[in-house]
Write a protein that binds this DNA or RNA. Structure first.
Length: 576
DNA sequence: CTGTAGATAAACAGCA
DNA sequence: ATGCTGTTTATCTACA
């Protein structure tokens, strides 16, 4: 059973679901899978990236001579670059996740192999760096961790079920338990890299254990916290599993994006000089950007991209990524508008991925304040939140909102006051804010004009079941987007985020729906995303399967309180 | 060009 | 006095 062979996601899910194996066994299994997949993926990825870059260079040379074609090509390239960036991001995230949990350790000899030859020219510096860190972290952990492996998953894991796991170490916090004070600097916290105490689970003065984020003044208190709050128990184990799920989702997403990238490359190889591509940019843009980003995919907004609205491009790294041509790393006050909505991610996997992404990367979420506030409120058990709880939600869910508190908090208050859809309700313990769903929908009545019947449908249907369901249903109806009911419902966070995102999609979708739903030959933007099919069973097994209930239990375990300490940014936040 | 919506900034009042 | 909460106004930008 432990043969290091890549099993299918379904199999993995099955195993996870049935829980026939002990958590430890599962983890070991997952490690294997992840390490294997990761290696494969990275190899492929680098190959493709290299190819692509060469292709782009060629194209650029050609395009320089043919002004007319240049535009198309440029557009395609932009989309393409986005895709690649996304891939990078995904890779980074993936590695980060694995690394953060200590799930990933790579055999010292192996990882460099596919990299070395490429390293000279093409590999993004951050990836190289990452590899170095991963490998060095491995050796560090291996040498130190072996000496005093205290009570942690590794110990139990290795001793109980997988004695032969020498190449893969699953070790969430061996180093911390073992008083390893100087840890290999992790890319995770760029701004903290100079700090002597750096830990993948510690950054910005908060514990980065998934869903925790307790404030720890210094590294010592963090260690204490880690040992007391995240010792080996059911909860930690569950959370660990959840994190594995997250990683798995990322992997799935990565696989899909790779496919897409492949298709794009194939397409460009074959047709890059074909004149037919004239109307293409539009379709290309809509489908591609829908999946992610590329505000610059629109030719008009040339050097202007004020920030990186949605593109999961972590500012985590120092060097600009190789393919980036424009400055993609600014994170500042910006004004994003509807254009952003075209960039909104769509699939369930995207959502999961992005949720995790926004939690960790200081990238501005592509949603309006109103949508976010609504989301926060709808996510709450009672569908009502105090202002402070809303603040907390923002900081919890989006790394971006862990800074510039004065600005966005003001904006939140402003939005609460301004929009009729937010209703203040006097409560025993003060005032809470609720959402008037009808009002919220009213905000842009004409926008859905492309589909009047759907509006009625939705408005009557969401009448007043739970706001969440209403929102989801409405969104589903409006956008004809398949909703992975099990997944979304299983996990309020994902579900609601999904609904938020779909909400934001309204505008964009209405567009594409009314204007071009059938104008694109084989791939309308919607189809490009997913086959239409509403609720119930998870669609293609790679998508939404998975015991998301797991996520729920872990993320919302009874004693899981995150509203505890979300004072603004953990004080000393004045980087930049 | 105009209207609308969102983001941001800021002034201000009420309250604890 | 201070900080938080909530309201309101103004300005700017993006977009249809």
């Amino acid at each position: 059973m432990m043969t290091p062979q890549v099993i299918t996601p379904q199999q993995m899910q099955q195993i996870l679901q049935q829980q026939v194996l002990s958590p430890q066994q599962l983890q070991v299994l997952l490690q294997q899978q992840q390490a294997l997949m990761l290696q494969q993926q990275l190899q492929e990825f680098y190959k493709k990236q290299q190819e692509q870059l060469q292709l782009q260079l060629l194209q650029q040379q050609h395009a320089g001579k043919q002004p007319k074609e240049q535009q198309q090509v440029a557009t395609q390239q932009l989309a393409f670059q986005q895709q690649l960036l996304q891939m990078q991001q995904l890779q980074q995230q993936h590695l980060l996740s694995l690394q953060r949990q200590g799930l990933l350790t790579i055999q010292p000899g192996q990882p460099a192999l596919p990299l070395q030859p490429l390293a000279q020219g093409m590999i993004p510096t951050e990836l190289q760096q990452l590899w170095k860190e991963v490998t060095s972290a491995h050796t560090a952990e291996e040498t130190t961790g072996n000496n005093h492996s205290s009570l942690d998953l590794t110990t139990t894991c290795v001793s109980s079920s997988a004695p032969s796991k020498t190449s893969l170490i699953m070790n969430p916090h061996a180093s911390t338990n073992g008083q390893l004070s100087v840890h290999t600097p992790k890319r995770e916290s760029l701004s903290h890299e100079e700090h002597p105490h750096s830990h993948p689970l510690y950054g910005h003065g908060v514990c980065k254990w998934p869903g925790c984020e307790a404030v720890c003044e210094d590294f010592q208190s963090f260690l204490k916290h880690l040992n007391s709050e995240h010792a080996l128990d059911d909860r930690s184990t569950a959370q660990c599993r959840v994190q594995m799920q997250v990683v798995q989702q990322l992997e799935l997403q990565l696989a899909k994006d790779k496919e897409r990238l492949q298709a794009m490359m194939t397409h460009l190889h074959v047709k890059s000089t074909e004149p037919k591509a004239a109307p293409q940019p539009l379709n290309l843009v809509s489908s591609v950007t829908l999946s992610k980003s590329a505000s610059e995919a629109s030719p008009q907004s040339l050097p202007h991209t004020p920030t990186t609205p949605t593109a999961p491009i972590t500012p985590v790294t120092q060097g600009p990524s190789v393919i980036t041509t424009t400055s993609m790393h600014t994170v500042g006050p910006i004004r994003r508008r509807y254009s952003d909505k075209y960039n909104v991610p769509i699939s369930s996997a995207d959502i999961a991925q992005n949720q995790e992404f926004y939690k960790n990367a200081e990238v501005r979420p592509p949603f309006t304040y109103a949508s976010l506030i609504r989301q926060a409120i709808l996510e709450s058990p009672e569908k009502q939140l105090t202002l402070n709880e809303i603040y907390n939600w923002f900081t919890r869910m989006f790394a971006y909102f862990r800074r510039n508190a004065a600005t966005w908090k003001n904006a939140v208050r402003h939005n609460l006051s301004l929009h009729k859809c937010f209703v203040r309700v006097e409560n025993v313990k003060g005032a809470v804010w609720t959402v008037d769903e009808v009002e919220f929908q009213k905000r842009r009545p004409q926008k859905i004009s492309g589909n009047p019947s759907l509006i009625k449908n939705m408005q009557s249907s969401h009448a007043y079941c739970t706001p969440l369901n209403a929102a989801l249903q409405a969104s589903m109806a409006e956008n004809s987007i398949p909703l992975y009911t099990t997944a979304s419902m299983g996990n309020p966070t994902l579900g609601n985020l999904a609904s938020a995102i779909r909400e934001e999609l309204n505008g964009a979708m209405e567009h594409t729906n009314s204007n071009e739903s059938d104008s694109s030959p084989g791939r309308s933007p919607m189809q490009a995303v997913h086959p239409v099919h509403v609720k119930e069973e998870p669609l293609d097994p790679e998508e939404a399967e998975g015991p998301l209930s797991l996520v729920t239990t872990a993320n919302h375990s009874p004693d899981f309180d995150h509203d505890r300490d979300y004072e603004d940014e953990p004080v000393n936040e004045d980087m930049e």
